[in-house]
């Protein structure tokens, strides 16, 4: 069989690209057109970009030259990191505690009537629509600068997400233990306690751990709007253009997040296996 025979055997494979997958070409063209539109829309100019990047060169150099390393204020950096971790911890714990009743109330498994479930779900959607940094900004206006506002921001933002995840975990739980309890005449409370909670608790805990992990990340940036922690130290140093110290803090943050990731992953695996 020559190449020509094969081509005659399966002609559709050898059509030109636009005929074989018009959708693909169409997508490419529309993305390309959109990018050209956005260059205009954002007044993007390569010149400005290159100018900006050339301005960044001294910053990048000063980021990695640590001349006066031993004179830096390590104390405030350490306190910043501890504050960030505490904010993440308190926020996650508070959100988890509130999310258990909220999540159960928003679950099909617990509340059979759809109206209260619907109201709680829309309320949670509303909370989740607002970014954590916006919450932080609002709490800073109400409570003043400091980590307390950060804790509250994490608490509110996480309640929105955790309750939803908890309610989904409860929705997906097995019906049989619950039915067994109901058929043997258990009360509503003990049905929940012995039928549902043992199934969902490991999931709840592992999700909370996961959120602690992601919160230690988001707690970092809360300091930028004045909610304390290591983010405050970082943004102060960036404003004062102490790029070397700022870069040092960024490295510390990366290490901190990596360590927490490892620990929390190990704990989660342990919990799920138990």
């Amino acid at each position: 069989m020559t190449d020509k025979d094969i081509m005659n055997l399966h002609p559709q494979v050898f059509y030109p690209l636009w005929k074989r997958s018009p959708l693909f070409i169409l997508t490419l063209i529309s993305i390309f057109t959109y990018l050209i539109f956005s260059i205009n829309y954002f007044n993007f100019s390569l010149n400005d970009l290159l100018n900006g990047f050339s301005k960044m060169k001294p910053i990048l150099i000063s980021m990695v030259t640590w001349n006066d390393f031993f004179t830096w204020n390590f104390n405030s950096i350490l306190i910043g990191i501890l504050q960030t971790l505490s904010m993440a911890f308190l926020g996650t714990i508070a959100a988890s505690i509130v999310s258990i009743p909220l999540g159960l109330l928003a679950s099909r498994q617990v509340v059979k009537i759809s109206l209260p479930r619907f109201i709680i779900r829309r309320f949670l959607d509303f909370i989740r629509g607002v970014d954590i940094l916006i919450w932080a900004l609002i709490f800073v206006r109400a409570f003043g600068l400091g980590p307390l506002s950060g804790v509250l921001a994490i608490f509110v933002a996480d309640t929105g997400t955790l309750s939803k995840l908890y309610s989904e975990a409860a929705d997906n739980s097995d019906n049989k233990p619950i039915e067994g309890l109901v058929s043997s005449g258990a009360t509503k409370i003990s049905t929940l306690r012995f039928g549902l909670i043992p199934q969902v608790m490991p999931i709840f805990i592992s999700q909370s751990l996961y959120f602690f992990e992601s919160n230690s990340r988001s707690a970092v940036i809360l300091g930028i709007v004045g909610a304390g922690g290591i983010g405050l130290q970082l943004s102060e140093r960036m404003k004062a253009q102490y790029w070397d110290q700022a870069f040092f803090i960024i490295l510390l943050i990366l290490i901190m997040v990596a360590v927490i990731d490892r620990v929390s992953r190990a704990l989660r695996e342990k919990l799920i296996n138990e």
């Binding site: 400005d48 970009l49 900006g52 910053i59 990340r217 988001s218 960036m238």
Partner: peptide, 21 residues
Amino acid sequence: RGVPEIIFAILFVWALGIGPI
């Protein structure tokens, strides 16, 4: 992905000026 995007944003606002770019 480790560095929060808002930290990058601070850096680029400093270099490229205020604006969406």
